[in-house]
Design a protein around this nucleic acid. Structure first.
Length: 221
DNA sequence: GACCAGGCACATC
DNA sequence: GATGTGCATGGT
């Protein structure tokens, strides 16, 4: 897997789909909330929960920090796993208020690698959630790996089927220019093509990544 | 009705 | 370290 191949994949995706305008959220905090709510969950369901929070004027750190967890759980119900996700949102806010004065702006001074370690210590914030927050909410050049990324790359025979999260992230980060905008668009494009073509039971014939270098036959492994 | 969706923590071996 | 399981809603 070379830097040229990774850049070619990006070019093909961008030419086919164009800019994806990620993350679909208006504020830093909305992006963070979305990153937690979308864990193993369809984005359409997350949008319902976000709309409810927005309508209740709760999409701000202070008010979400102060609301009772039971009320929060009920409000985010459409996003699924609502009890556990309410706890995870509370865990993030506890960290923000107890360590950084409740101000997202205070995170700007922290080096990316240190901030990533801090985020990963929050119960309910794993690698993908932490990296999504870093890239899309905090504009740090961190490549986000998700289920689509891994599935696309393995199905094309471009990485080992047993490659773990950090190995896949390393592959992208070390072979691409370390630019926030490139990582942003690249991940969004992988999700875009993954939703349409790289499903568990795929219909890959018209995928723009077809024969790069895989063949249609190898996709059905 | 089965399957899937932009994960994660925890138990167990 | 690898593998299995609970968490839950809504769309196809």
């Amino acid at each position: 897997m070379t830097s040229e191949q990774l850049n070619e994949i990006y070019q093909r995706l961008f030419e086919r789909f164009g800019p994806q305008h990620w993350w679909p959220g208006e504020t830093q905090f909305e992006i963070i909330v979305g990153a937690i709510l979308t864990q193993n969950t369809n984005w359409a369901n997350v949008e319902k929960a976000i709309s409810t929070l927005k309508a209740a004027n709760l999409l701000c750190p202070r008010r979400l920090y102060e609301i009772e967890i039971e009320k929060l759980a009920e409000l985010i119900r459409p996003a699924g796993y609502y009890n556990i996700k309410a706890r995870r949102l509370k865990n993030f806010l506890a960290w923000l208020f107890e360590n950084h004065d409740g101000q997202l702006n205070n995170l700007n001074e922290i080096p990316t690698d240190l901030l990533r370690r801090e985020l990963l210590e929050i119960k309910g914030v794993g690698r993908e959630t932490a990296d999504s927050i870093l890239l899309y909410a905090l504009n740090r050049p961190v490549f986000v790996v998700d289920a689509y990324t891994a599935r696309i790359m393995t199905r094309h025979g471009l990485i080992d089927t047993d490659a773990d999260y950090e190995q896949i992230r390393e592959l992208f980060q070390s072979n691409l220019d370390e630019e926030t905008q490139l990582f942003n668009e690249y991940h969004a494009l992988l999700v875009r093509v993954g939703k349409e073509f790289c499903k568990p039971k795929p219909k890959c014939e018209d995928c723009p990544l077809n024969r790069l270098p895989h063949t249609v036959e190898t996709q059905y492994l």
